[in-house]
């Protein structure tokens, strides 16, 4: 029977010396693709590490997959995958050996571990380089390998700490596509910690914004966007100027973005007026992105409120 909440925390706090990394975090997170957002040093990684029992909790309680974090660490981690932010492979090991070993550490018999290691390396798109020593891998390969070791034991939830760090745009897109498929196609809950809003916006349905160790926002991306309606990004192949003038006639703010898209502030709660305008102009858009900056605006707003409160 599926559990209603994969993460449950109550007054979860973590203190390092005088610094409060997590300050009374209360959360109930349903399964899905979850984005953990926050500036550097906000407490995102600490939150993940506390849930994985990598760092002991100072006070409060936490449950992961319905189990108490403090007492059932090993059992929890059998069903959890984790890709840390930094490189932390075992030196001298070959890629497929490493993933096999990680599977064995989760309790898979050797033969099964080896077979699954190869399957997961196929899944993350690693070919013959799996037989090379990890020390010789590029950043992109290391990120793929990290993902493979995190999912080799078929976890129910995967924590990904900055999974696109150090990757070029193409590499970022490939990793995000893989991560997205984990939830959408295979039903594995993913928690993506990032300070890159675009990454989270692209693959996550639920957003948690953390700053100064506190949860500022926890809502679905859809709800966040609905709160910020009234703007859209329109991609058209031609007639940009004509569309801009039509918008100005209606007293809608409109400006051309560096990527060639038009940002239109239609001020309505739905896209209908904009679609009508395009219809009247007999202009077929290539793409319409509703509330394109909703996440960024929410993020900035939450941070400002947090700073003001401090």
């Amino acid at each position: 029977m599926p559990i209603p909440f994969v993460i449950e925390t109550e007054s979860l706090s973590k203190v390092y010396g005088r610094q409060r990394a997590l300050d009374g975090v209360n959360l109930r997170v349903a399964p899905g693709a979850i984005g953990l957002l926050g500036p550097n040093g906000a407490g995102k990684s600490t939150f993940m590490k506390c849930l994985l029992q990598l760092h002991p909790i100072t006070s409060g309680s936490a449950k992961l997959l319905g189990r108490e974090v403090g007492t059932e660490g090993r059992e929890i981690r059998k069903r959890v995958g984790y890709t840390p932010e930094q490189d932390c492979h075992i030196p001298g090991m070959v890629g497929c050996e490493y993933v096999t070993y990680c599977a064995q550490l989760c309790g898979l018999p050797f033969q099964v571990a080896r077979q699954r290691a190869h399957e997961m390396l196929d899944f993350v798109g690693m070919a013959q380089e799996r037989y090379r020593k990890i020390d010789t891998y590029s950043t992109g390969m290391k990120q793929r390998l990290k993902l493979a070791q995190a999912i080799v034991h078929d976890p129910e939830i995967v924590f990904l700490d900055e999974p696109t760090n150090g990757l070029d745009p193409k590499g970022q897109a490939q990793i995000l596509e893989l991560v997205e498929s984990l939830w959408r196609t295979y039903g594995i809950t993913v928690v993506v910690s990032s300070h890159l809003l675009h990454d989270v916006d692209r693959i996550c349905q639920q957003i948690i914004i953390i700053a100064r160790g506190r949860v500022l926002v926890h809502d679905s991306l859809e709800n966040l966007k609905s709160r910020k309606r009234g703007a859209a990004e329109v991609v058209v192949a031609s007639r940009h100027e004509e569309l801009r003038l039509a918008c100005e006639r209606r007293q809608w703010g409109c400006h051309l973005l560096p990527n060639g898209h038009l940002n239109i502030e239609h001020k309505a709660s739905s896209l209908n007026p904009l679609i009508s305008l395009l219809h009247d102009m007999k202009l077929s858009p290539l793409e319409i992105i509703p509330s394109p900056n909703a996440l960024e605006e929410t993020f900035v707003q939450a941070l400002e409120l947090s700073h003001a409160a401090a």
Binding site: L52, Q53, L54, R74, E75, R77, K78, V80, G81, Y82, P84, Q86, D87, C88, H89, I90, P91, C102, L105, C106, G107, Q149, H153
Partner: peptide, 10 residues
């Protein structure tokens, strides 16, 4: 830092 990998397993 591979201890973090061990600690994140079962």
């Amino acid at each position: 830092n591979s201890i973090i990998i061990y600690s994140s397993k079962a």
